[in-house]
């Protein structure tokens, strides 16, 4: 099956800073994909490129196998629905806002009403149809914006931080809405989130974004610094790696690759740090710990290990990991 997107050698600078640098990225059709990263990692910038509301300085983007050189034609435009992090509804009623999308997409007038009804039902916003856009709550506004984006039945739905600033009830409604859309045949959803757990919970695949670059590593234990002679210096600690890529400025360490112990371990592991336990958090079937070793390390262990190690907040613990556990990018 043709991929929804294929990005090649994408570079985009913002205020003289390289905001996106993606050598290659494929987004398959029919998947729900979470775009994860910290604030400022480039998630919104990437989504705007995918929505073709902004352009890269360099590189090529293909949409369903067709390279997009300038602007989208009407058929391509109809394939993408985009909802911004802070959606904007034009003055007027909810229905007028949704109808505007149909008008702009040149959908025949006789099809407007059934499509509007369907979009309102899908987003559970039928009761809001005649409400003025400036009277909606944050959660209602996001669902109406999604209704407006899916009313012309696009194949791709792009959502920028859809869950931010929402209460539990609206968050749940939105999760259901995204999953319902993604369940349909050949529909692709790409949504950004800085909440790694939430992203993983409802997506089929994950794209990690760090400082404008995609990385296979999880987004925990990402440090900025310089690499020289296999030694990565963050300015606070030095980490051994096997990489010689001197032009790289980031490392990531998989939290599951870090061994936690009460005393320093006698082993072949090149990296060993001691630090204070500052956070213990329960996550589904595991426990996430944060240890301050000069840099904050996140470590994931089992609840049994937590009991065996008899850990408590403020206790000094030792961390060890191999240099091969360090991903340099």
């Amino acid at each position: 099956m043709t991929n929804a997107y294929q990005l090649t050698n994408i570079k985009l600078s913002y205020q003289r800073r390289l905001a996106l640098d993606i050598p290659s990225l494929t987004i398959p059709t029919g998947k729900c994909i979470a775009l994860l990263g910290e604030n400022g990692a480039g998630k919104s910038t990437l989504l705007k490129l995918l929505a073709f509301t902004s352009r890269a300085d360099k590189g090529e983007i293909s949409l369903f196998g067709q390279s997009i050189q300038s602007s989208l034609n009407s058929i391509q435009r109809q394939k993408i629905g985009f909802v911004d992090q802070h959606p904007y509804l034009l003055p007027g009623t909810v229905e007028a806002n949704i109808k505007l999308a149909l008008k702009l997409q040149d959908i025949p007038v006789q099809e407007h009403q059934p499509l509007i009804q369907l979009a309102l039902e899908q987003t559970k916003t039928s009761h809001l149809a005649q409400k003025q856009s400036n009277t909606l709550s944050g959660g209602e506004l996001k669902r109406v914006a999604i209704a407006r984006a899916i009313v012309y039945q696009p194949d791709i739905l792009l959502l920028d931080e859809p869950f931010s600033h929402l209460d539990q009830h609206h968050m749940q409604l939105l999760e259901e809405l995204i999953l319902d859309f993604a369940k349909q045949k050949n529909k692709t959803v790409v949504f950004s989130s800085h909440d790694r757990l939430q992203g993983m919970a409802i997506s089929d695949e994950i794209i990690n974004l760090v400082a404008g670059q995609t990385t296979a590593s999880p987004l925990l234990n990402v440090f900025h610094g310089t690499l020289s002679e296999h030694l990565f210096d963050t300015g606070k600690i030095q980490v051994h790696s096997t990489s010689t890529q001197t032009e790289s400025h980031h490392i990531a360490i998989d939290p599951r690759e870090i061994i936690l112990s009460a005393q320093p371990l006698q082993s072949s592991m090149r990296n060993s740090f001691s630090g204070r336990l500052i956070l213990i958090a329960e996550e589904e079937e595991s426990v996430r710990l944060t240890v301050d070793c000069g840099e904050s390390f996140h470590v994931i262990i089992s609840p049994e290990s937590l009991n065996n190690l008899n850990l408590s907040l403020g206790k000094t613990v030792c961390l060890s990991f191999k240099s091969t556990a360090v991903t340099v990018f």
């Binding site: 705007k48 929505a51 509301t53 009407s74 435009r77 109809q78 993408i80 985009f82 911004d84 959606p87 904007y88 034009l90 505007l100 999308a101 702009l104 997409q105 040149d106 407006r148 984006a149 012309y152």
Partner: peptide, 8 residues
């Protein structure tokens, strides 16, 4: 940007 994303 909203109008462009809606197909204007």
């Amino acid at each position: 940007p909203t109008l462009i994303s809606l197909g204007a």
